[in-house]
Design a binder for these strands. Structure first.
Lengths: 164, 164
DNA sequence: TATATTTAGTTAGCGCACCTAACTAGTTTG
DNA sequence: CAAACTAGTTAGGTGCGCTAACTAAATATA
């Protein structure tokens, strides 16, 4: 059964799981992108805005870290969000290099609306499943969140591959 | 759809699940992209190649449908995969408009290696979880696959939103 | 005090993925 | 055979992600 001692069995199971998880994530996002765009914000912008709305004011670098992208990417994203009036930038008084980001009221509203639309579609899809499957997905997402959180330090652990 | 304006308990639960699922998918793929690139193939190419390796020979349009992208996107993807010697294109004898795609041996090998690397990382992450969580994720992925399959026809159901 | 180093963020420029619109070339239909 | 449809390609545009090179502010050092 599920025990970590047998490398081949557990590993190959994880291999299949990982592969399908990867594929499912790709296809899910491709679907949702359309809805996100219909709301006027792309998925990355919605994601970044979400951090600002729920995570309070953060620095630009903090947002980049939270979104796991490089600073230039966040700079451009934030510039466009600011141009749309969804976030405000302020230089920190104590450290004038730092840019403090805050979501505006409009940003909060738009996030809720965008989220509402996306979620309405996703929820409609979830309706196609039975209750136990929904619970399973919900719990799996929780596990994934923890995984992504904890795996932060593990990213570099890449022993070479076995070649062939 | 269930009913009118009142956000019932089940609906708001789905809302939260959907939002977290979306976010988790974004972050998961951002992480994995680095590994995919390290293998020499991007995530979309790996995904397309995977369809060819496991799904047998398909037409270009069939691959586009499977990957849920538009034909031009697949055309470019396949051109690059072909240039890399990973897939072959053949005009169908019966219908000369159709392009039949097949993965080469090199393509199969490369897919397995790329998959191996990605999966090794993902499997290492999964090791951070307990067994029941892994099982949960595996089952959730299965449910998601069915969901994405069945939701194909539901994509267009987008009524306006109810403001806030 | 003056200079070197580090840190936060920006600008410039590249590649990739996705799209729509317009086209070519086969296939089916009237 | 001409008209309509279908499979795939080409052209052109947008957005996201990256690295490299830069400015400006803070800090460390002599």
């Amino acid at each position: 059964m599920p025990d970590s001692n047998l490398p081949s069995d557990a590993e190959s199971r994880n291999l299949v799981t990982a592969d399908r998880l990867h594929s499912a994530a790709i296809h899910l996002l491709r679907r949702l992108r359309r809805v996100d765009e219909a709301t006027g914000l792309s998925a990355p912008k919605l994601s970044a805005l979400s951090v600002l709305v729920f995570g309070g004011p953060v620095s630009l670098g903090g947002l980049a870290a939270a979104e796991q992208v490089r600073p230039p990417t966040i700079t451009r994203l934030v510039r466009e969000l600011e141009a749309a009036g969804l976030v405000t930038r302020r230089r920190d008084k104590d450290d004038k290099r730092v840019v403090r980001l805050t979501a505006t009221e409009a940003g909060r509203r738009l996030l809720q609306r965008g989220r509402g639309r996306r979620v309405r579609l996703l929820a409609a899809w979830l309706e196609l499943l039975c209750d136990s499957e929904r619970v399973t997905i919900d719990r799996a997402v929780g596990a994934l969140e923890r995984l992504l959180e904890n795996a932060r330090s593990e990213t570099g652990s890449d022993p070479g591959d076995g070649g062939e």
